[in-house]
Amino acid sequence: MTAQVADMGVLADRGALNSARLTQDARRESLTFLALCSPGLILVGLIIVLPIGWLFWLSFFDESGALSGANYARFFEQRSYVRTFITTFQVAFLVTGLTVLIGYPLSYMLSQISRRAAAICMIFVILPFWTSVLVRTYAWLVILQRKGLVNTWLMDLGVIDQPLPLAHNFTGVIIGMTHILLPFMVLPLYGSMKSIDTDYLRAGMNLGASPTATFWQIFFPLSLPGLAAGIIMVFVLCLGFFVTPALMGGGNVIMWAMRMEQTTSLYANWGAGSALGVVLLAVTLGLLALFHRLMGARATSVWGG
């Protein structure tokens, strides 16, 4: 690229040939392209921006219609809300931790085996990803409920006398959500592990590092962008998750999204529900922004791949 600044004053005498027409053409072209995007933009504006903006507005009015911060103050005053937030973050941290714990070894294995074997194993990751959340939650209900598979087997084997409480409680929510969100951890992790040049590892070993040291000093740091992407994705999805806790929690585990559904559908309290939504969105976007700030350009490469 040349680095000359444009104001050279050379156009004055010849009156910039055709420049008006060319500017007009350029404007017409960008309008045409904007028109191509406009159906999508209009729909997103209608379904996402407008209603969410509306809810945002509503959240600042109490039930009598007066401007107030009551809907937000409620979060700190009512114990049930506080409990909801605590539960939500407990679930989010636990599920994120579990997906790291079991997703990392799986991704590591996928990155080390042959391309063909990895492709076959990836089917196991992708297929659940594209199976309805409802179907997978149902499967876990069948497996974990009081008279479900696990309890029947364990009792048949005489390991236990009483059925274990695995479903309709916190445990069930954690097991189900970990299963459903695991692909969101594995996909970016595998992507970033796959892009690690094996030559680095070879070099590390040639320089005398043990396999364990090579892993921790070379491989692990290089896989961090993918790990970070997976963590942020799973955590953010956990915060707003609805289907699995609603079905697996049996009414005992009230998470953020469920509280929103209850306040709006059951109690028709739009102000309170909206306030919950506003904070949820703010936390979600805040975490994503923080992630992009921390990871910088590397983040986009992980999401892109």
Partner: peptide, 24 residues
């Protein structure tokens, strides 16, 4: 920016979209 807007539903909590859409 346009791409971010068009793909925003991937990160916006679905529950919020559901409530908002119902309201609208």
């Amino acid at each position: 920016f346009i791409q971010t807007l068009l793909t925003a539903t991937l990160i916006i909590p679905v529950i919020l979209v559901g409530i908002g859409t119902f309201f609208l």
